[in-house]
Structures are given as structure tokens and as C-alpha cells.
Amino acid sequence: MAGQTPTLVLVHEPERACFERLLAEGFDRRAATEITSYLAQSTDLAPEFDAIGEACARRGIRFRAVELDEAAGVLAACDRSGTLVWTLTDGIAYFRGGAAPALARLNGLATVGADDSVFALCQDKFRSGAVLGALGLPVPTAGLARGGHWLVEPPASPAGYFVKPNRLGAKVGIWEDSRIAKAGEALALGRRVQDAYRDDVVVQPYVAGRNVRASFLAVDPAAGPEVLGIAFVDSGGDFQTMADSMALYGETGAAARGEGRYAEPELVPVASAQPRAAETIRRIAATLMAGLGLRDVFSLDLRVEADDTVHLIEFEVSPGLPCFDFRAYCRSQWGMSLAESMAETAARRVG
């Protein structure tokens, strides 16, 4: 309707709703708690909804946070000409947020982020790895196991292997023993993941190097890979486990803060130490934007070796906005808080 105030709709799936659904599906409480930790960004961002609303109001935009279970009705009633939908939490299996961009498309609404087909792709590590490989990107070739059986055996790897659930995020199902020496050892881990989470495991050749997170937010719609924030994430270990991740976010992260156990990994700009690797990562991002349709907001997880060899591990189209690394990126790249960055991104698209 002409004259309506432009609106930013943020669709998110709360931890509690997912937890109760998983219990109803027969998961035990421990596994349900671990799985739903992926949705901690909803918990962590909720206290800032007022700040986001105020930042939007200063730019002439209305802000509305909508829980996923209400999204179908809300989006069906939105004004097509002045609504922008931002999906905070994704998912196609344990989580259902990938439905939000599809609902937006169904109702003819503009969105922040990649289209809904990419939301589905990124949640399946084995399938997305195959697509990334087809694009010529440096992603480790993976095997796939279901319980104690191979669906696809991994290639030979003298350096050993790394095993992780296929459709879970936030390091869920990654333990201290997830790095193994021989491919056959993956089957025992596969049985453990299947018993706990009902998921397959991806088995990738182990790649050396430091962990890197590349963050992207196109506050300016014309921005490209040059605004990518690329940082080493040094947590003190070779890789981050589920326990490490859960201590940073959501209710467990809040408890860790209260008990004085909270410690953020150190962020170090890659360009300051390995500028050639940083440029390689920008080229990888450019390929993903052109070939896969990543846009507006996304993140990449990579490993960088001392000789500047870069390995792309996976990508996210709904990165953890309230996470420490993305907040740091907004401050360093855009000179704004997370709330201001989100509001400005929306204003430049619907204002």
C-alpha cells in the first residue's frame, strides 16, 4: 500500500521452540540441548531488538522481529513494495529457518542474503562440498559415512582425517577426538554421531594451518569482496570443539560469563601476517558471489597454512551476527555497532 513505512522483518527460530520439537521427536535432553545451541544467536540477539528498532527508526524504517512459527502468516500479510526480510537462523533438517527466504519469495518480498536454494545447499556439507569443488575452489574432497557404513569412501590422506556431522553447525558433534589417523576410525565416530544426533558424518582429509573466519556484510549494496573481513581465529587449539563453541554463545555462554569462564578467541587480521593468503581468500569469495550467488551477508571458514596455501572448509549464508567475530567485523569495516550496521544495510535497500 502506498505511503506505508518500509519495514525490516527479522525472522528467527528460538532455541526453546527447537528444543521442545526435538524432545517430541525422541531426542534425549542432552542431545537436544547440544543441537539447539546452533540457534544461540536468536538468544543472544533478542536483548538488542530494541536497539535495532531504534537504529531503524532513525533511518525511517520499522523493525519487526518475528519468530519462525509465526512467519508464514506475518509474511503473507506484508506489503510487497516496502518489506525486506532478513533470515537470522537457517536450517533444513534440525532447524527450519531455511523456510523463511522461501516464504519471502512465495509472497514476493525482497530479502537480505542469498536465495533460498543456497540456504538449503549450505546446510548439507557433503553436497555443498561437491558444488564448491565443481567451481574449482580449494575444498577438501570428502567421504560420507552413515553410522558404521561408508556411503562414499574418502581419498587417501597421509595426514589423517577430520570427522564432523553433515548437517549440524556450531561445532555440534565435533569432539577432541574428531581428528583421526586412519579412515576406518571414522566409522566409530559415525556411529556415535548417528546415535546422538541421527546424522551422517563428513570425513575430510586433515588440512594443516590456522583457522580463519571471513565475514561479509554489504552495508553498501554495491560492496564486493574488498569489504570482506578476514581474520585468524586463535582459540588455543588446533580446532574448535562443541564444548568450546557452547561456552561462547546462548544460555551456556551467559553462564560462562557469570562464572568468569568466558574467553573469546583472539582475532588477528590475516592481511597483517599473510597478505597473499588474504588476497586468495578474496578471490575465493568473488568466485562464490559470482558462481554460487552469495550476496549481502555471509561468512567463510578456512584453514591457512604458513606457505599461504588456503583451504576452504565451508560457508554460511546466515552467519552468527551477534557472535564476537561478526561484531568485531562491523566495528572495524563499517565503524558501526551490529545494530547500526543491520539498520543501515536495510535502509540502503528499502529506504
Rank of each mutant, 00 (worst) to 15 (best):
G229L: 06
A231T: 12
V233D: 05
G236T: 13
F239Q: 01
Q240A: 14
T241R: 11
M242K: 04
M242C: 14
M242W: 13
M242P: 06
M242G: 15
A243H: 11
D244T: 02
S245P: 05
S245K: 09
Y249R: 10
G250V: 12
G250Y: 08
G253Y: 00
A255V: 12
G258C: 04
G260S: 03
R261Q: 07
A263K: 14
E264L: 05
E264H: 06
P265W: 00
P265T: 06
P265I: 00
E266D: 10
E266W: 00
V268D: 06
V268R: 13
P269Q: 07
A271T: 08
A271V: 12
A273H: 08
Q274H: 15
P275E: 06
R276Y: 08
R276Q: 13
A278H: 03
A278P: 02
E279A: 15
E279D: 14
T280Q: 14
T280P: 00
T280W: 04
T280S: 14
I281T: 02
R283Y: 04
I284Y: 04
A286W: 00
L288A: 00
M289T: 03
M289P: 00
A290P: 02
G291I: 10
G291M: 07
G293E: 05
G293S: 04
L294Y: 04
L294N: 04
R295L: 01
V297A: 14
